[in-house]
Design a protein around this nucleic acid. Structure first.
Lengths: 262, 262
DNA sequence: CAAACAGTCA
DNA sequence: TGACTGTTTG
C-alpha cells in the first residue's frame, strides 16, 4: 500500500514541469524515507536527482519499497488538470501497476481522480558520491535563469569560473564574446537575494548552455540556486524544495578547446 | 423595415464568436418577438439555438418576419471591428438582401457602418419540444469549461452522470481514466458560483468532448451554465443571456460501449 | 490565482 | 487563419 498526501500540490506540478524536458520516462522510487527519482536525460549527458522527504508530506504511507515507472509527458498532462491550490494524493496498491492521482480543490467542492497505468522502466541507479566541491556558489535562481538565457543568445557553451572575486559566466559566439561577473554580496536585505561563494580552489569549467537552460526550468521551485563545481567532476545545480528536499541536476563539463584568441 | 439597436453590443460579438466554430452559415430569423437562430453544426450532430428577445433591445422594429442568411465568418470579421463597448444597430430594408451594421463608440466619437450582402440558405427549422428533463445541473460556466478542457487531455468522450451525490464527469484514455465529481453546494457566497442539481432520476450519458469544448466557447456569455439530461434525449447546454434570452446547444448522446471492466 | 491579452506556431 | 502558449494584469 502506497498513499501520500501533499497539501501543497503545486510543488509536484513544478517538479514535473522542471524535469519533463530532460527526462521522458522515469521511475519514482518510494520508500518510507520519501519519494525520489533519479534519471539520465534522453541523450545520457545530464542526470536528474529528486528527493521529496516523507516528513514534507501531510500523510505518507509506503509499506514496502516500490519503483513506479511513469511517462513524464503523461504525468504532466494529468497534473495540469489539478488546480495550483489543490491537495494532491497519490495512491497505489502494492502489486498495482496503476497509480491514482487524487485532486481536491481547497473547498472540497471538486474532487477528481485519475488512474494512470505504470510502466516498466529498467532503472539505472547510479550512486552519486557526496563529494566535497572546490567551489560552491549560491545565487538568486532568477539571476541564474537570466544569465543562462542571455548567454545562449550569444553562444552555445558557457565557461563558469569561480575566483575569490566572484563567479564569471563567459560565452563566445559569432556575434561576439560575453562575460557576466557576479560578485559575492551578502549585504542584501533578503538572504535569498544574496550571492555567496565558498571556494577552496579556483575552478573554471565549460558546459553546454542547452542543458543549463533546461535546468533553469526548476527556477520556480526555489528563490536561490546552488552551483557546486570541482575540476573534472560534473557540476551540480541544486534547487532546494522547502521542507521537503531538493531537485538536483548533474552535468559533465566539456573539454575546453584550446581555442586561438580571436 | 428591420432596425434594431443593442446598447450592449458585446453580447452580439460574444454570441457570434461562440457559434462560429460550429456553424458556418445560418439564418437569423427576425420577428416582432425578437431575433432567433437555429442551426445544425456542419456535421449535423449538434444543434445551436439562439434567442434574443425584442425587449432586450433598446429599440426593436421588425415590420414583417424575415430570415436573413449569413456567413458567420463574415459576420465575425465585421463584428470584430466593433469595440466591446460599442452600441450596435442592425438595419435592413424589407426587400433588402443587404444587412447594415452600425457601430457607435460610447462617446459617439466614432461611427462606422458596414453593409453585408445576405445569402439564401435553405433553413431546416426543427421543432424542439420543451421536454421535462430527468436531471438538470446548474454550475459555474468557468468550472464546466475547465472540466471539459481537462478531460479532453485524457480522452475523447465524457460520461456525465448525475446522482443525488453530485455530478460526475468521467473519461477514459490511453494514459488512464479520470473522474471529476462536483458536489451540490448552494452555500457559496455568490449564487453564480453555486452548483445545484435537480434530479428526478439518475442519468448517465456519454458525449463527444469535441462538441462540449465547442459549446464552452459561450462561457463568457454567462457566469453559469445549465445542463439538462434525460435518457436517450439530446443533452441541452444552456447559457442564459441576461435580460434577453439564451444560447442553447443540443447534442445527442453516444451509445455507451459495453466495455469490459478492465 | 484566474482571466484577458498578445504574440507565436501550425 | 485559427489555435495555443506565455505573459501580464486584476
Amino acid at each position: 500500500m502506497f498513499e501520500v498526501r501533499l497539501v501543497q500540490g503545486s510543488v509536484l506540478k513544478k517538479v514535473v514541469e522542471a524535469i519533463r524536458e530532460l527526462v521522458t520516462d522515469a521511475n519514482f522510487d518510494c520508500s518510507s524515507t520519501g519519494l525520489s527519482l533519479q534519471a539520465m536525460d534522453s541523450s545520457h549527458v545530464a542526470l536528474v536527482a529528486l528527493l521529496l522527504r516523507s516528513d514534507g508530506f501531510e500523510h505518507f504511507r509506503c509499506d514496502r519499497n516500490v519503483s513506479m515507472g511513469m511517462n513524464l509527458a503523461n504525468v504532466s498532462k494529468i497534473l495540469r488538470t489539478a488546480g495550483n491550490d489543490d491537495i494532491i494524493t497519490l495512491k497505489a496498491d502494492d502489486d498495482g501497476d496503476v497509480l491514482t492521482f487524487m485532486f481536491e480543490s481547497p473547498n472540497q467542492d471538486r474532487i477528481s481522480d485519475i488512474e494512470m497505468k505504470l510502466m516498466d522502466i529498467k532503472s539505472e541507479h547510479l550512486g552519486i558520491p557526496d563529494a566535497e566541491y572546490e567551489a560552491v556558489v549560491k545565487m538568486p535562481s532568477q539571476e541564474f535563469l537570466r544569465i543562462c538565457k542571455d548567454l545562449s543568445n550569444i553562444g552555445d557553451t558557457v565557461v563558469i569560473s569561480v575566483t575569490k572575486e566572484g563567479v564569471k559566466f563567459s560565452t563566445r559566439g559569432d556575434i561576439g564574446n560575453a562575460n557576466i561577473v557576479c560578485r559575492q554580496n551578502t549585504t542584501v536585505d533578503k538572504p535569498e537575494d544574496s550571492t555567496t561563494i565558498q571556494m577552496k580552489e579556483p575552478v573554471s569549467l565549460m558546459f553546454a548552455l542547452r542543458y543549463m537552460n533546461s535546468f533553469t526550468k526548476a527556477t520556480s521551485l526555489s528563490s536561490s540556486v546552488t552551483i557546486s563545481m570541482s575540476s573534472d567532476l560534473p557540476i551540480v545545480v541544486e534547487y532546494k524544495i522547502a521542507d521537503m528536499g531538493y531537485l538536483r541536476f548533474y552535468l559533465a563539463p566539456k573539454i575546453e578547446d584550446d581555442e586561438d584568441q580571436a
